[in-house]
Design a binder for these strands. Sequence first.
DNA 1: GCGATCAGCT
DNA 2: CACAGCTGATCGC
Length: 603
Amino acid sequence: MSSFAGRMKEYPNISLDCFDRDNLHARAYFLSHCHKDHMRGIKGPKLKRRLRSSSRVKLYCSPVSKELLLSSRKHLFWEQYIVPLELESPTQISLVDEASGESEELVVTLLPAGHCPGSVMFLFEGRRGNVLYTGDFRLALGDVARMEHLHSGGRVKDIQSVYVDSTFFDPRFYQIPSRETCVSAIVRLVGDWIARSALHVVWLNCKAAYGYEYLFTRLGQEFNTRVHVDNLLMFRRMPEILSYVTCERRTQIHACRHRKSQQYVHGNRLPCACGTGADLRVLSIKPSTMWFGERTHASDVVIKSGNDAFRACFSFHSSYCEVKDFLSYLQPVQVFPNVVPMGSTLAEVTRMLRMTCRKRPRDDLAYKPLGLLKRRRRLATLTTAPPDDPDSDDDLFDGLAAALPKKLPRTSRHHPDEHRAPRAAPQATPHTAPHATPEENSLWLVARDRSDINNFMDCTESNDDDDSEEDEQSDRDQTKWLGQRGSPCGEPPKWEDFFTVDSQNNLNGQRQARRPFSPALSGPSSEREDDDDDVADFSLSLSASDHSWQKRDASEADEPPPSSQSSSDFDVACTPDSKRPTPEQLARLYRKLADGDDLSCPD
DNA sequence: GCGATCAGCT
DNA sequence: CACAGCTGATCGC
C-alpha cells in the first residue's frame, strides 16, 4: 500500500497519487493508476472546491486511467480537468501559480509500469533535474534498459531522484516468478479442472482491483470462453478485455465476488450462486504473491491449500531483485521509498535503497558516445558468427539488423532535440486525446462503434456502484449486448497490452515489435561491469531472460558494483571469431562515426 | 449527514 | 506467502 504523501521535493508544486492535505494546493495533479491507495482524497469536497475555483489545474494520467477513473460516477466531476497523455510522448506542462502568475515549465513523460491497466511511471524533466516517480510497478529484469525515454545520447539519463515502489524491496522477497510462468501455471490448473465435466467450474478469488485482466483474457482465449465478472462498465471502451469477460453466469470460469464469497465456495457454490450448488464442483484459486529466496528454486507457483483450493502465484509488484536491477541501472543520486515493506521499517528500506544509488558523481565529460558503435560492431560480427544461444540474442539482433540501414526505428521518428523541444501540453478537451485521433493513440480507447458504446453504457449504468443484490435484468441486458458483438475474437492480447498504450499500436494488434533501446544491448550493468572476454556474460545481459539473469544476479547479489566506468567502450565481449580492433581500425571507426557513415559495413 | 481514520477481515 | 479494498465502529465537524 502506497504511503507516498503526494509530493516530490524537487517539484513541490505538483502532486502525485494523493489529493488531500497539502496536495490541495498543487498546480497540477498526476495519477499513476486507479487503485484506491493512490487516489486518496480524489473525490473530497475540498478538492472539488479547488477545481471549481481554478481555471488551470489539471489531472494528468494515461488514457486508460482516465477511462477507469471516469467509469465511476463519483469521479465524473473530474472529466473536464483530465488531460490524458500518451505513453512515451514527452509533454511540456506549464505550472502556473494563479495568484502571482509565476510559471514553471516541466516536461513529463509517461512510461509503462506493468502494474495494472493504465498504470504508468512519470518521468519529470525540469529546472531541478530529472525525477522518476514509479507509482506501483512490475517490471522484469532488464526492462528498464529498453525504455527509450530514460536514455539520452545512447546512455541512461542523469536521474536526480527516484520515488520507487518498494513494496517488495526486502531480500526476503528476493525473486517472484515471472508473470508468464504464473499465468501458464494457472492456465494448466484451470484446464485440468474444467476438462473433467461441464459441472466443474473454477472460481478465481481475486481481490477487488484492476490487474487480473490479462489473466482473464488469457484464460478466455485458451478455453474459448469468457470469465464471469461482476461489472463490465469499467471495460466499456476496452474491447480487448471486453471480449473475454461477461456478466453471463453460465460459464466455467468465474471471478465474481460476493460479500460472503468464501462461505459460498466452501459450500461448493459460486459467489454468483450459479446453479443450485449441489451439482457443481468448484475449484477455488486464490492469486497471491509468492516469493522465493536467493537460493530457492522457484518451482511451485501453484500450491494446494485445501480440498479443491489452490493458491497461485501472482504479483502486481516487482521483486527485490527486479527493483534492485531497476535502480542499479538508473543509478539515481537519491531514492525514496513509496512503500514500507511488510515487516520492515522506513529507516531500513531507505538504508537499503541508498545502496543502489550513485556512489560518485557521473563524469559525463569523459563519456564517449559509443553505445551505438558497440552494438553495430557486435552486429557486424554476428552476421558471420551467430551466437551460440539463439534464444538470447536472435530476437534482439533481428530487430537491429532490420533497422541498421536506417536509423533506430524509434529514435528516427523523433527529432534529436525532441527532449529539449517537447510539444506543449494541450488544454484539456473531454474525450479528445491530444495531437492524435483515438485510433492513433490507443489500443484501449477505440470504440469500434460509438452507438455500441452508448448502448452498452445504457445497459450497464444500473450496475455502477451497486453493491446490493444482483440485478438480473441488467445481467441479461449486458449479455444480450455482448452477444451482438460476437464471440471472443481474434488474436489474443498480450499481457503488455493491458498495461501500456503504445502509440505505435494499431487496431489490429499489429504491434510494432518493441525493439530494445540501444543501452539494453550493453545489459543492465554493463557500464559498470566491463568484463572483457566473457561472451556468455554479455549474452545473458542481452537476453533479459528472467532465468539466466536471475542466476547471474543471484551469484553477485551482495557484491558491490565495480567502481569503474572508465574502461574503453571497446572493451566489449567478443564473439569467438572476432578480433579486438587495432588502433588503426579504431581510428577509422572513429572517423566513420564522426562522418555519420554506416558502421556495420566492415572495412 | 458526511468525511476521516482505524481495526478487522479476506 | 503479505495486495487491495471493503465493512463497521468511532470520532469530529
